[in-house]
Design a protein around this nucleic acid. Structure first.
Lengths: 212, 212
DNA sequence: ACCTTGATTTTTGTATACATTTTTAATTAA
DNA sequence: TTAATTAAAAATGTATACAAAAATCAAGGT
């Protein structure tokens, strides 16, 4: 078990709600809490800010951003625009070897029953990323998508949402791999599109009803 | 004239080629060069790294990334996927007031004859951003696109490229505003698409021929 | 009651000093 | 000669101390 960087710990703690939405993240408090000096705290904060996991609050302070249905919708529109593009560009380099690895990962996800919703979201992204990064053709796309998924994961703290969706999502993942293996690329792209659209719809719907 | 932050100065200097592609950016050297301690240098470097304007070189050092036609092509594919989406989402909030501001900006760009290619690229992005951010509906998209354009600007150091393209690009910008003013939204989106595609094609072509 | 204004306090920004890691160079063995 | 190993160096990571800026709060005026 390797020791996590302060950045990783902070990210995890924000996801887990230890620092809830709206929370002001000042360096002194965090430096006390994590028992390090302010320098590594500054580094971690700035990185989180660059990734959008923290936002400016006032002129010089940072806070955990609030969740909003509008933002979730925007994030899924972005996924919808970028991920089919990423898959399309990765297709020529997609080997059976990599499809096999993706299958292993899916199986592994299914076996771990006791995952939190956010953890499940993270593994979900691992699966998608495995496909998109085939051949290393998409470094820029991967970085953007990584950022988008970091943001999305914050919205996946709703356990009931994850439970409802887990089964159908897994089935679609297997189906996607099947199509890719058979070389049915157009159908695979279409499935990916509807897969993301459906997840986004479910999330936005949940956010709009739950918040009201 | 307000004093620039070290981050801004570094960014500018990278764009201008003072720190060329492949250059190792170590904190000590920069701290000497800019006459500040390593702390602000660290901050600036990390921010630049998060934006993709610096990349890891080895285990703990950073360098100015090399330019490649493949990356330019990828960046323009991303623009092509995101910018029409951004415009489409901004359309409902796009007022004549904002179109007027965009026109002012275009005129201003035309009047400044002595701009460097990179500066012209930056103002180009200002114009596009003005349209996309209408209503503040696209905060996430704007951040991603900002990052993409930061990257793209590094490729616009080729003066001859800019000169060839400047006129047709400006004409398309005016045409885009005209269509938007007239409410011809579909045509505006189509024009935006071909506008970006054309610029990308020109750039990639230039890179592939020039490098060989 | 509310909006300024100014002083106080808190917070962030930066420099310096030290610890740790990484990189480089040299040395030795195959 | 080349590869591996290890010692020297250089670079990065972190803590502490101080400077500058921002946020807070209280007093005074409208």
């Amino acid at each position: 078990m390797k020791s996590l960087s302060l950045y990783q710990r902070l990210r995890q703690d924000i996801r887990q709600g230890i620092w809830p939405a709206g929370q002001l993240m000042n360096q002194q408090k965090l430096s006390d809490h994590y028992q390090v000096s302010r320098i590594p705290v500054r580094d971690a904060l700035q990185q989180l800010k660059a990734e959008g996991l923290l936002v400016m609050a006032g002129k010089a302070s940072l806070k955990v951003p609030e969740l909003s249905a509008a933002e979730a919708e925007e994030l899924y529109q972005i996924r919808l625009a970028l991920e089919p593009l990423a898959l399309e560009r990765a297709l020529p380099a997609l080997s059976f070897h990599q499809l096999g690895r993706a299958e292993d990962l899916l199986q592994q996800i299914e076996q771990q029953q006791h995952l939190s919703a956010a953890d499940r979201g993270a593994m979900n992204w691992q699966f998608h990323a495995l496909l998109y990064q085939a051949g290393g053709q998409n470094p820029q796309l991967m970085q953007l998508l990584h950022r988008v998924h970091q943001q999305v994961e914050r919205y996946l703290g709703f356990q009931e949402l994850a439970l409802n969706y887990a089964d159908t999502s897994a089935a679609e993942h297997w189906q996607l791999l099947k199509l890719l293996r058979e070389g049915q690329n157009d159908q695979a792209l279409a499935l990916l599109h509807s897969h993301i659209a459906q997840a986004g719809q479910l999330l936005v719907q949940h956010l709009t009803t739950a918040s009201q």
